[in-house]
């Protein structure tokens, strides 16, 4: 149900590594819980974030939520498409709906995150 190549947090963020750059977004489960996303607030390029820091925010009509950095690092790119088209978070959360990219990440931090199976199990527990 959740893509295998990513790691997940209990706050429903995902992170994926490509050549030392770590892309972050929110899971399809989180997007469904929020409902239609109406606004995404992105971090500034160059901002240093630590693991667990609030780095972005996402709003729907009835809810708002912080997006926490699954790993620490320096923000090197943000997804400006979301400013004009926040619905991408609902439509395509793992590809076009990504939030920001981090570099300078210590890979050891990934160890504390969930893999796809563990996250699926966690989400299953949350539903009850």
């Amino acid at each position: 149900m959740f893509p295998k190549e990513m790691k997940y947090t209990k706050d429903h963020e995902w992170v994926r590594e490509d050549d030392g750059v770590y892309t972050v977004g929110i899971t399809s489960f989180a997007a469904e819980q929020l409902g239609d996303v109406t606004y995404v607030e992105l971090p500034e390029i160059g901002a240093e974030v630590e693991q667990g820091d609030s780095a972005a925010a996402v709003e729907s009509v009835k809810a708002a939520s912080d997006v926490y950095a699954p790993v620490g690092g320096r923000v090197c790119e943000t997804n400006h498409e979301l400013e004009a088209a926040p619905e991408l978070v609902n439509q395509d959360p793992y590809e076009q709906g990504w939030f920001f990219k981090l570099e300078g990440v210590s890979p050891a931090q990934l160890k504390s995150l969930l893999d796809a199976d563990a996250y699926e199990k966690y989400v299953g527990e949350q539903a009850h």
Binding site: T38, Y39, E59, S60, V61, K62, A63, A64, D66
Partner: peptide, 13 residues
């Protein structure tokens, strides 16, 4: 609109 900024949803934030 933009009620997600407000206290009844965002509470202490």
């Amino acid at each position: 609109t933009l009620q997600a900024r407000e206290q009844h949803i965002r509470r202490e934030k």
